[in-house]
Simulated assay, not measured.
Amino acid sequence: MTPAFLSARAYDKPTANSVRRAVAMLREDIDAALERDPATTSRLEMALASPGLQALWSHRVAHRMWQRGGRWRLPARLMSQTARFATGVEIHPGATIGRRFFIDHGMGVVIGETAEIGDDVMLYHGVTLGGRSMQQVKRHPTVGDNVTIGAGARVLGPVRIGPHAQVGANAVVVKDVPPQAIATGVPARLRFPAPAASQPDLYADPELWI
């Protein structure tokens, strides 16, 4: 089921309630970004200077246009390409993205048409959620809630990344990653951290970040 805020119909007739929902969603995005980016301390700075947020907001508009189909598809593609030029982030308007999504730094991120991304997901720069098929089928990854994908990682094909999993920097993932697992290396190998290690430690596990 498509989340309400991604539904094209929800925005056909702007009302006071829809405007309030849109403002609340923008604030939620900004607050989620602030929690993940210690270099920024104000909502205004985050809104104006975060290419990841700007790419996300542009995508949400383009995605609603894409859902309408027909003559809306070309303008949606043009909007996504304009956002790519401005931010360095390429998100196909057909991709589905959940709440509180954040891309840190932004440059070089590519998200394919049939990708599905859950809530509270974070990507670093250079991440690719790409396809491995030329057929018009589900060919891009499905990323569960609370997943972190490190810089330069490639997740390819209709694989599933389970909730709370972590994909290390520069990893190449072509198979499913179970919930709470850590995938690092080329091709990616799976590890399962101790339950106490719920938050990644930069120095204890540098493969997640480098």
Rank of each mutant, 00 (worst) to 15 (best):
G130Q: 09
P187C: 12
S58K: 02
Y124R: 10
L123S: 00
D145S: 10
Q67V: 05
A22Y: 01
L129K: 04
V121M: 02
V23Q: 13
L34A: 03
W66R: 04
R139K: 15
F192R: 10
H125C: 11
G52L: 09
P75K: 10
H105G: 02
G69I: 05
A55F: 03
H140K: 07
V173I: 04
Q180M: 08
W66D: 02
T184E: 01
M1V: 04
H92L: 13
S80A: 15
A39E: 06
Q54R: 15
I161D: 14
G69F: 07
L34R: 01
V19L: 04
R64N: 07
M134P: 08
R21K: 14
K138P: 03
I91W: 07
M122K: 15
A55G: 13
V127I: 06
R36Y: 09
I149A: 00
T41N: 14
G150C: 08
A115T: 14
R154F: 06
R36Q: 11
V89H: 03
V186H: 04
G162Y: 10
Q180E: 15
Q136S: 06
V110P: 01
P187L: 10
I210W: 08
I103T: 05
L156G: 07
V186S: 06
D205Y: 09
T41C: 11
V167I: 15
M107P: 00
D176K: 03
L48G: 08
